[in-house]
Design a protein around this nucleic acid. Structure first.
Length: 155
DNA sequence: GCCAACGTTGGC
DNA sequence: GCCAACGTTGGC
């Protein structure tokens, strides 16, 4: 039995929201063009849980939960010249960018805002609240993840 | 619009 | 390898 890990994955709701995921049921989490975020995806296990975070919106925060159901999938847009995610330096024999597939679990009744999170946790406990943090995918400490889940259930 | 906090690129 | 210039994310 592989250990379950917890993650946080950001998306701008204008581009792809928790409601889009609910309608679609599952989705390819594509367009990641940051090596650290990509490496986090590579270290995910099937069955891991991920908090869905709405970024670049008012207010930003955690809005739902999803599960990792597939990994090591080639991101097709790196080879699509018409995509903003096209990477001319990626090689089909050795693709540079991959992605995971996530499945909708739930949308929380209330948003757990970044403001609330930053009032509860330090930048060391929760890298999400670190000022200027630009990572779109990051791990969440297991104990903190469980605290967040129990808080979100009480909404 | 501003700016913090990076990541990337390219000259040397 | 160093570093300046530039680009991006994303909160505020």
């Amino acid at each position: 039995m592989t250990e379950i890990n917890y993650w946080l994955m950001k998306s701008e709701p204008d581009v792809y929201s928790i409601k889009d995921l609910r309608n679609e049921v599952n989705t390819l989490w594509d367009g990641i063009r940051n090596y650290q975020a990509r490496n986090f995806m590579r270290s995910m296990n099937i069955g891991d849980k991920a908090f869905f975070y709405h970024s670049n919106t008012k207010p930003p925060g955690i809005v739902g939960l999803m599960e990792i159901i597939e990994k090591n999938l080639i991101d097709p847009f790196q080879f699509d010249e018409n995509s903003k995610y096209f990477d001319p330096n990626s090689n089909k024999n050795n693709p540079r960018w991959d992605c995971v597939r996530t499945k909708y679990i739930c949308e929380f009744k209330n948003i757990l805002t970044l403001k609330e999170l930053s009032e509860t946790y330090t930048a060391e406990e929760l890298t999400l609240v670190r000022k200027g943090n630009r990572l779109s995918i990051m791990p969440i400490n297991k104990n903190i993840a469980k605290e967040l889940l129990s808080k979100l259930e009480k909404f």
